[in-house]
Design a protein around this nucleic acid. Structure first.
Lengths: 212, 212
DNA sequence: TAGATTGTTAATCGATTAACAATC
DNA sequence: TAGATTGTTAATCGATTAACAATC
């Protein structure tokens, strides 16, 4: 399986969103140029990115929207759904449990874990909530190997270690700390701090410019 | 005010986190090499990034931790706190309202907005919740020009338009759709789809590799 | 002093954009 | 057919890494 460039992978969902819009508008075919305009990505870039999915378009006409969407979903492995576990049923965790789009993006939260006794034994959005002690047993029984980390920063490393011990191979990390993990573990951070850093600086640059 | 490269800005918070750890461990001085090891960034990269903050270290010794932290915070404008408005008091919005770290990162949510009558008039974490109708009036009175967008995808564009009409210049967008906004508006997306795309693909690549 | 660390210049790498032949 | 669009090769751009002189 070919390693697709990081930045190409990050753009593919944008194209998917654009295609969804075009589809809803009743279109059947679309050109890379149209996608480029909608997503603000250079049209050559779009063509190159799409080439990674293996689709071939027809000159003058473009691509079948349905075909293209399927190709992107196949490339991201969003066509078959992986089960995953969520740890941390705070507001953020609950937001993720209620986020139905996840199913369209290849992920299903089949169980959640928390240390709050008031939550343990209950469900949220139909998803059962267990004590962390049951994580290892359940993950091996259900063959789950993806974990979502939505606990406070202080607990993140400890929970990550437990996930690893239970055979998790990929962690989607919503805590703002850098986890120390072995090389082979797949880790994706939702890095709010990085995003906020860019926003803050750009605002400061903007306001400073105005004063001139 | 100099425009700092995007990727440098995104790394600065990582350095800040590392410095915090070192400080808590009782250290006073730190070398770029140590930061590099902790953050998994190449040491030359760290030195270059730090140079943007204006600090000068001393050969053989390194940098004062306190001085370096202040320099980074100044660069990101995290030393003075901007007021901002949050729209969307769902689970995600509440998570942000309760996220105390925001204050250490230059942002304070001073009011939230929602269309749910049960929420309007109440507070969460001490932050008052208003109807969206009051957004424009309050933003001009309180001189707020940063908006956090935490509403469902369907409502995102509409709310963004209202924010613009009210004089917002920067939007921190947590919805997974690409907003159509004028050039001069500063927009930062928390792009969960992009992150999930990378995770999904890497997992698929990993599992496929195992089968060989 | 010797050697670790600094800041900076040069070389490399990877990603983006431009150019263009092929084609429905 | 003519021209829009494709896929791909070449040129450019920006970011990362390597090399190295300066220095406490």
């Amino acid at each position: 399986m070919e390693a697709i460039p990081l930045l190409t992978l990050k753009r593919l969902p944008q194209y998917l969103e654009a295609l969804n819009r075009f589809k809803k508008a009743g279109l059947k075919m679309v050109s890379a140029t149209k996608i480029a305009v909608f997503t603000d990505v250079h049209m050559t870039q779009v063509r190159k990115d799409l080439a990674y999915t293996g689709v071939v378009g027809t000159p003058k006409v473009g691509h079948h929207i349905d075909e293209l969407m399927q190709a992107i979903e196949r490339t991201l492995n969003w066509n078959d759904i992986s089960s995953c576990f969520l740890v941390g049923v705070g507001h953020l965790g609950k937001a993720l449990m209620g986020y139905s789009e996840l199913n369209k993006k290849g992920l299903r939260i089949v169980a959640a874990f928390d240390k709050d006794p008031d939550l343990i034994g209950n469900t949220h959005q139909g998803i059962p909530i267990y004590s962390m002690e049951r994580f290892e047993n359940l993950s091996s029984r259900l063959h789950v190997h993806i974990g979502i980390l939505a606990v406070p920063a202080e607990a993140a490393q400890e929970v990550a270690d437990k996930m690893l011990a239970a055979g998790i191979i990929a962690i989607w990390n919503f805590s703002n700390i850098k986890l120390q993990l072995p090389e082979h573990i797949i880790i994706e951070n939702i890095d709010m701090s990085a995003s906020l850093a860019v926003l803050s600086r750009r605002v400061a640059e903007h306001l400073h410019q105005e004063q001139l």
